[in-house]
């Protein structure tokens, strides 16, 4: 196995607050890697740096050997990295089906010129995209809601929609920001099963921020622990669980 994502020495400050401070981590191809740490540890800021929503002050980020830290978010998606957000970001006044279709890559119909010049190609791609979208909605069992507005879905269903939506672009690496937060226990099991299944069948790599330790213990191969902007330690879930510094960081005791 080799590192699919390599984060080295990334820092990001907001005013005087060093939200991420010289953080380094690497995610092995085909792994489910967890990123844990107490609130305010800088996990989400690091996610935003990786996915291009924030530009790091210092440091490098490489995806499959290609530097991405200066790319805008949409270009990073094209490079093969997709993400979800802490609260699901359903496009509420679009249908569930349109939420997925919108995420399809290289659609000629999204360019004004092609709508006139390449109408045939637009129609063919749209049919293809619709079929693929239905397949993904069936996968997460939302196909009955295809024509409903996404705003009518529950919080947990929106998380499933977020997942289906990014899958249509066939990402190599998916960043999940607290997938279990605000999801009822039944749907949690379903989400966990999806993550394991997607790795097994499609070889997708995951980097997951999660507070739900049951998820971390059951799903992840490797865990990075952040506290106060730094990567405190790393290891297998079992190693990390026994690490005194991790316990201290969560309980707020001095290291």
């Amino acid at each position: 196995m080799s590192a699919l994502l390599e984060v080295s020495g990334v820092s990001k400050a907001f005013g005087g607050v060093r939200a991420v401070d010289d953080a380094s981590l690497s995610v092995e191809e085909g792994s489910i890697t967890a990123l844990i740490g107490p609130n305010g540890a800088g996990k989400s800021t690091l996610f935003n740096c990786i996915s291009g929503f924030l530009r790091p002050d210092r440091g490098q980020i490489a995806l499959a050997g290609r530097r991405i830290e200066r790319l805008p978010p949409h270009a990073i998606v094209h490079a093969g990295l997709a993400r979800t957000f802490q609260t699901a970001r359903a496009l509420t006044r679009l249908t569930v089906l349109d939420n997925v279709r919108l995420a399809a890559p290289s659609h000629p119909g999204e360019c004004l010129r092609n709508l006139i010049a390449r109408r045939g190609a637009v129609r063919r791609r749209e049919a293809q995209v619709t079929e693929e979208a239905f397949r993904l909605l069936r996968l997460v069992r939302l196909e009955d809601y295809a024509d409903a507005l996404a705003g009518t879905l529950s919080g947990g269903q929106r998380k499933l929609l977020d997942l289906a939506r990014i899958l249509i672009a066939s990402p190599r690496l998916i960043l999940l920001d607290e997938p279990m937060a605000g999801v009822n226990p039944a749907l949690r099991e379903e989400l966990l099963a999806h993550v394991l299944d997607l790795r097994a069948t499609r070889g997708i790599t995951f980097l997951v921020i999660e507070h739900d330790l049951a998820f971390v213990m059951r799903a992840s191969d490797h865990v990075f622990v952040m506290a106060e902007g730094r990567v405190l330690t790393e290891g297998t879930p079992e190693e990390v669980r026994r690490d005194e510094r991790v316990i201290d960081a969560y309980l707020g005791t001095d290291v």
Binding site: P73, H74, V77, A82, R89, A90, L91, A103, P105, I166
Partner: peptide, 11 residues
């Protein structure tokens, strides 16, 4: 609806 979500979908 949500410009950040759309840009995270590659647009």
């Amino acid at each position: 609806e949500d410009e950040d979500a759309v840009s995270s979908l590659g647009k």
